[in-house]
Design a protein around this nucleic acid. Structure first.
Lengths: 131, 131
DNA sequence: GATAGCAGTATCCCAAAGGATACTAGTATC
DNA sequence: GATACTAGTATCCTTTGGGATACTGCTATC
């Protein structure tokens, strides 16, 4: 596995690595975080616009996700004193720090799906119990 | 955000990217997948050894996770005809394809935690409502 | 003055993930 | 012959993520 490039494998470095990975997985995990980020990638959007763009997300969940994304400094929230008040959500510069990770995940995910498809086919064309 | 390096951003490429990322997140997600992989990184282990090493995982969950890891070809299961039968789990070569992704996640996770800690401190040292 | 839009919040509900505990079949030891 | 070990399974329970639906306060339009 080797989750710690250089240096020794103490139990501390390992569990620290595991913790960091869990943190990372957490902030982009869940059903809606990525869709929201990707929607905002095309430009700032207001609450209702996001809800319409994502179709099927309920306001409660959208609100919660946006709060978390804001906490993690991926999106910024700006209130415009129009009537009625409108609130604009936009990606921060920091959000692009995710790029490398996301590309890595996407590429690995693609390759993995290909691989599974291939080995499934191979298994099917094999006589039963051929191991 | 830019989750698609080169080429156009059609809705298809975007949602395909999102799908691939979700797949990737899924196979390493959950509470125990990474701990199991990291435990097996130190060498093949039997079921009970894993359970003891991971302390707190129940056999039901361990069994389920191992099955999924096996399906994804990260671990292989070999039955030794000893008495009583022992079953050895070990990492496959394919499991190391995860390295880059995991390192990326770990590094990003570390940096992110640092960043959050820093901006929390900054917020605290600020007089209230200083924005 | 009812309706519709804004940005949410509140309450209830459901399904999935995971935990607790007990159990299986087989053999070796006390 | 009871106990303990192997690798799990079975059943029940709790927690969490998320969905459905209704509602808030405010303003602008019909």
């Amino acid at each position: 596995m080797e989750i710690h490039t250089e240096g020794v494998h103490t139990q501390e470095t390992c569990s620290a690595a595991a913790g960091a990975i869990r943190d990372a997985l957490y902030v982009i995990g869940g059903k809606w975080k990525l869709p929201i980020l990707m929607t905002l990638a095309s430009g700032p959007q207001r609450f209702r616009e996001l809800q319409r763009a994502l179709e099927d997300i309920t306001p409660k969940v959208l609100s919660k996700e946006l709060k978390e994304l804001e906490l993690n400094e991926f999106v910024s929230r700006t209130v415009h004193p129009t009537t009625p008040v409108t609130v604009e959500y936009s990606l921060t510069g920091y959000s692009s720090s995710l790029q490398k990770v996301l590309i890595e995940l996407r590429d690995w995910g693609f390759a993995h799906r290909q691989r599974l498809k291939a080995s499934l086919k191979a298994a099917k064309s094999q006589p039963a119990h051929a191991e």
